[in-house]
Design a protein around this nucleic acid. Sequence first.
DNA 1: GTGTCGGCCGTCTGCCGACAA
DNA 2: TTGTCGGCAGACGGCCGACAC
Lengths: 401, 401
Amino acid sequence: MRLSSSSSSTTGFNQVTREGDKKCLNSELWHACAGPLVSLPHVGSRVVYFPQGHSEQVAASTNKEADAHFPNYPSLPPQLICQLHNVTMHADVETDEVCAQMTLQPLSQEDQKDAYLVPAELGTASKQPSNYFCKTLTASDTSTHGGFSVPRRAAEKVFPPLDYAQTPPAQELIARDLHDNEWKFRHIFRGQPKRHLLTTGWSVFVSAKRLVAGDSVLFIWNEKNQLLLGIRRATRPQTVMPSSVLSSDSMHIGLLAAAAHAAATNSRFTIFYNPRASPSEFVIPLVKYIKAVYHTRVSVGMRFRMLFETEESSVRRYMGTITGISDLDPARWPNSYWRSVKVGWDESTAGERQPRVSLWEIEPLTTFPMYPSAFPLRLKRPWPSGLPSFHGLRDDDLSIN
Amino acid sequence: MRLSSSSSSTTGFNQVTREGDKKCLNSELWHACAGPLVSLPHVGSRVVYFPQGHSEQVAASTNKEADAHFPNYPSLPPQLICQLHNVTMHADVETDEVCAQMTLQPLSQEDQKDAYLVPAELGTASKQPSNYFCKTLTASDTSTHGGFSVPRRAAEKVFPPLDYAQTPPAQELIARDLHDNEWKFRHIFRGQPKRHLLTTGWSVFVSAKRLVAGDSVLFIWNEKNQLLLGIRRATRPQTVMPSSVLSSDSMHIGLLAAAAHAAATNSRFTIFYNPRASPSEFVIPLVKYIKAVYHTRVSVGMRFRMLFETEESSVRRYMGTITGISDLDPARWPNSYWRSVKVGWDESTAGERQPRVSLWEIEPLTTFPMYPSAFPLRLKRPWPSGLPSFHGLRDDDLSIN
DNA sequence: GTGTCGGCCGTCTGCCGACAA
DNA sequence: TTGTCGGCAGACGGCCGACAC
């Protein structure tokens, strides 16, 4: 993935706004392309970084698992509490694939203790824009034979109104993509029965973005009365090719060494998060982590729900049962909360869903009130006792609000 | 750069031939695309690896210099003598850009001493194929309006002979690219004056490879009477975009950590060499290194020649004068031979050529016989004495043949 | 010897409503 | 409501020699 323009996050406090040489990606469009489940932590907030999850993303991007022969980084714990200094949204110049660049600074030992005492920094879920639609392209949409058939409700909700006095009603639409490129389309309402179509300009867009049937386009009509245009490619299997800049082994080592060095010196480091390549978010708000790990009771046999994205870019819940709680990789990452929950899924199509999830990804179903709680329910981990409960912090030190 | 097919080197001894799931890239075509100055060390031979040069390649690929805040790797010397276990040629699936993957194993201390005693492993220069031609594409060649105008001598030398009894003489050519894809062209000899043209099939090739005026194509007619077809894109400025898999800092750290770990444990590691992205080769035959460093007398003021590639894929010599000998980066890479020679170039177009080169890249002009020499001339480095002369080896231990 | 052009023909692009799912 | 098709007109692709540098 090669990056073009970039922007700072436009959400959150303590935001670092950078202007000048770099163009700003439209945050709304970025989130729409990333999908409804992707949320970025706020700039200035505290987050938990999982090198293990980062390693999984690199493995997915290089098609190669981390090797067992790697050097050890004893100074690198399985989760690292960090200050999030900067978030920059990017989009691949070739494919429009979105990713986020984050600058993290591991907290010092003293600050880690304080981390549990500060007012909760609530992460807001990525709010999808209201005036938008997303359509999966048909064979006719991508064929050179014709244009793009706009679903009626979508056109009426998202596009500016046509003058229905004209025959046929038509207008020119100008939409901008993630790179702020302008695309012009002729929008016309014709045919028998009547339908909305994009004709002139559509095929140029399809061939420029190399869209094929099965890919999706999304149009947003924002508050500034601008039309935004994004794409989301179908997940085609086996499209990932190894990069030739660095061997995958060196990449894995680099990710670990960079995090370990930053942790040892409390200095900043930079990571890329690829929402549509990574199996899970590996930088999550500290508050979300604490809530899930220390204030939620889970146990084997417990039922839970979890959100997934649908084909139509909306969300639905799948249900399952917790079948176990244990380290995903006891040898390399002991005492890690990353994907520590083994689960079984209710539906038979469960083959597509992970057999292991992290605590903060699921919604346990319980008859008790879950939170806020005056008596926080503590997770009993199945690990041998005597381990430092949380990087040397005693359980009693932990509190929220 | 994303890799597709690959092959083991077809030159050199101790060659590991891998067959089955991986297709073999044609070595002849790979070298033709890489250019006349690129040579790969033999599998099984001993080489010198320069992490500093590797770092330069990564910097060129990520558009970012190595950061000074990196952790130190005291176990990583500026040059590492390695056994070369494997060489695999690759080509980018999107752009056809060539690169080579090498598996290196640092020698143990004992083996390092032996390294200077073994019979010389002479590296052979990359021999360009004899029956080939390379043409830079004109506006007419890449226009949709017509086909490809084949230079007359090239067509007569490289293409199979036409039957000139026909009117006009024509034939179908089938050429294979680096990925072993087949391309068919109609080759015809017509017009007034008569000329060789590729018509039907040419435009498909141009658009598939996304060739533009200024790019080059090369045709090879090999010993097996096969027609091979490669491309070499014009060096367009600012085409390098940062990857989003890993931050450039992490990549730099990864390269250093991987090499340091391999050096400390005498285990294998893997690197990618991108001939057309990297400023210089950073894995060179040990013999070439020893010859240049220990058996060549250079001094400030000395005249030298150095090979460069021309537009037409051939080589020419440029002349210059040595203006200094010193460490390129005394802080991070003290006592490194990497680009230790400061030079001035004779011609005014010297702005394009590096101000620093390595000893083994240049041909010092001297009135003495240079080598072989019964009395090896030793380089007097301007560094403070007392440093280990060569990883703890005494000068007298060194010998060639 | 070869890069670019005008001429010319054929194919494909692309806009239209019909029709059916 | 919308995916695909046949019909049709015009644009562009693509093969040719002319011509000039």
